[in-house]
Amino acid sequence: MRLSEFRQAIKDEFGDGYGRVLTSDLVLTRFGVTADQALAGGVPARDVWLALCVEADVPESRWYGVGLPVPKG
């Protein structure tokens, strides 16, 4: 997952405003820091996304494939 895909997934799942609040304020138990801090520290975007999904109680059916462009063909 690229950072742009992570940002799109946040927007798709939580909206712009709430998504920004979550990534900057919610401490992810798995990492002990916020999503923004984890990303800045080099944690892969996919790992941060999955940890955020767990913390925010996102249904597992929506964990994968979000933020990705629609496949061509």
Rank of each mutant, 00 (worst) to 15 (best):
M1K: 05
M1C: 08
M1W: 03
M1A: 11
R2T: 13
R2Q: 13
R2G: 05
R2K: 14
L3Y: 14
L3I: 15
S4D: 15
E5H: 14
E5F: 04
R7A: 11
R7G: 02
R7Y: 08
R7Q: 11
Q8K: 15
Q8D: 12
Q8M: 14
I10N: 01
I10G: 01
I10E: 01
I10F: 00
K11C: 07
K11F: 11
D12R: 09
E13L: 15
E13W: 01
E13K: 11
F14K: 06
G15Y: 02
G15N: 04
G15F: 02
D16I: 06
G17C: 11
G17P: 03
G17N: 09
Y18T: 12
G19V: 01
R20M: 06
R20E: 14
R20D: 13
V21T: 07
V21W: 12
V21A: 13
V21K: 12
T23P: 00
T23R: 13
S24Y: 05
D25K: 14
L26D: 05
L26A: 13
L26F: 07
L28C: 10
L28G: 01
G32V: 11
G32L: 05
V33C: 10
V33F: 05
V33G: 03
V33E: 10
V33P: 00
T34N: 06
A35V: 07
A35K: 04
D36I: 07
Q37T: 08
Q37F: 03
A38K: 00
A38E: 01
L39S: 03
L39M: 10
A40C: 10
G41N: 12
G41P: 08
G41C: 13
G42V: 09
V43H: 02
P44H: 14
P44K: 14
P44N: 12
P44E: 11
A45D: 09
A45H: 03
A45M: 04
R46I: 06
R46L: 08
V48G: 00
V48N: 02
W49S: 00
L50W: 02
L50R: 11
L50M: 08
A51Q: 03
A51N: 05
A51F: 04
L52P: 02
L52F: 02
L52R: 00
L52Y: 00
V54S: 07
V54Q: 12
E55P: 03
E55N: 08
E55I: 11
E55T: 14
A56K: 09
A56E: 10
A56W: 05
D57C: 12
D57I: 05
D57Q: 14
V58H: 03
V58E: 04
V58L: 05
P59T: 12
E60G: 12
E60K: 14
E60V: 05
S61R: 13
S61C: 03
R62Y: 09
R62G: 02
W63Y: 09
W63P: 00
Y64A: 04
Y64G: 01
G65W: 02
G65Q: 03
V66E: 01
V66K: 07
G67C: 07
G67D: 01
G67S: 08
L68F: 06
L68H: 11
P69D: 04
P69H: 09
P69G: 04
P69K: 06
V70D: 12
P71M: 04
P71S: 09
K72A: 10
K72H: 08
